[in-house]
């Protein structure tokens, strides 16, 4: 068993729209080890959610297209895996928590059934076994009176409770890889801490690898081992969590950190000027150049990757 569970290599996910081809993911590479939690941060529209969806091949095609690259999971390329094999991984070996708890649960199905169907499908449980397990799962994610509420309809739950149901569904089969898309944005701070602790525990005890997509740097600082920063469909900086926060290298990462309130500094917040790039009309050079304070002539050319795969940046600054 290799230590590296997931290795994304030069992934290209494009969307063909009436306004041209949108390169939502434009050459993304990273690795995630077992038991490792990777934070994937960036503004909305930077391609982080599409990266996550691509791993489970859930991008609708058309208009989407996997235009290139490989996604190696435990030695197999998920992009070329036969549909039925991939299905046996989905929700089982690889699970996903979606962003919007209000719309991500089927409104016409009881909560219990939505959890038990995963267990029946992948773990071959009987209905009674699955129901028992569903109650355990709901208890685990902190739903009060789980036995009494398991048969509720989704609309009878609050947003936070629905998000916890989503999480319970994802954890049901103890996945090896958990893809979480803003899993805690809808939750109260106390619940948020509880859920993050649960994910951390999962990573520690079951060796689950986690990719946590978020724009909340606080969450990343609290839970992630590694951080990848995305901008304009590319990863622009990668580093373990401490060096990234202590000594960010890419101007975009610096800007991102400067625009977040921190307890230890009372300085003013400085937002990044300008707006995110148009992914259907990317400049040939660095996508961040139009907003960058340290922009140089060289930035008109696409910068390469400088540094180690797990500690480096995509920027001309301070390089040859």
């Amino acid at each position: 068993m290799s230590d590296v569970l997931l290795s994304v290599e030069d992934l290209q996910t494009h969307f063909h729209t009436e306004y041209g081809t949108v390169k939502a993911v434009n050459g993304v590479s990273f690795e995630v080890k077992r038991g490792e939690i990777m934070g994937l941060v960036g503004e909305s529209g930077s391609g982080k959610s599409v990266t996550n969806l691509s791993i489970l091949r859930l991008v609708p095609t058309p208009p989407g297209e996997y235009a290139g690259g490989r996604i190696m999971f435990d030695g197999q390329d998920l992009l070329t895996l036969p549909e039925h094999t991939l299905r046996s991984y989905r929700g089982n070996r690889i699970a996903m928590i979606f962003q919007d708890p209000m719309t991500s649960l089927t409104p016409y199905m009881r909560v219990s059934r939505q959890i038990t169907e995963v267990l029946e499908l992948h773990q071959k449980m009987t209905r009674t076994q699955a129901k028992k397990r569903a109650i355990e799962l709901l208890e685990m994610v902190g739903i009060p009176d789980p036995a009494g509420r398991v048969d509720s309809w989704p609309h009878e739950f609050s947003g936070g409770m629905r998000q916890r149901v989503m999480i319970a569904m994802a954890l049901a089969c103890r996945p090896e890889l958990l893809l979480a898309d803003e899993p805690t944005t809808a939750l109260d701070v106390t619940i948020q801490a509880q859920i993050l602790e649960l994910i951390r525990e999962l990573a520690r005890e079951h060796g689950t690898a986690v990719i946590m997509v978020t724009h909340d740097l606080g969450v990343v600082a609290g839970i992630a081992d590694h951080v990848s920063v995305m901008y304009g469909g590319r990863i622009v900086e990668r580093a373990p969590v401490e060096p990234l926060f202590a000594n960010p290298q890419h101007p975009y990462t610096k800007g991102l950190l400067a625009s977040v309130p921190r307890l230890d500094s009372r300085g003013e917040l400085t937002p990044i000027p300008g707006s995110p790039p148009d992914l259907s009309d990317l400049p040939p050079g660095c996508a961040f150049a139009p907003r960058c304070e340290a922009v140089m002539d060289k930035c008109a050319k696409q910068p390469g990757w400088y540094g180690e795969p797990t500690l480096g940046k995509r920027c001309w600054l301070g390089e040859a």
């Binding site: 299905r87 929700g91 979606f98 991500s104 089927t106 409104p107 016409y108 995963v118 569904m169």
Partner: peptide, 27 residues
């Protein structure tokens, strides 16, 4: 079919038939 909960159903590993019959059909 374009809604979020159908995507969730696909992410669970259900077959297209199961997704349609259980999750999409009613709506």
């Amino acid at each position: 079919i374009r809604s979020d909960f159908v995507r969730t159903a696909h992410a669970k590993g259900l077959s297209e038939r199961q997704v349609v019959m259980r999750h999409a059909m009613k709506g």
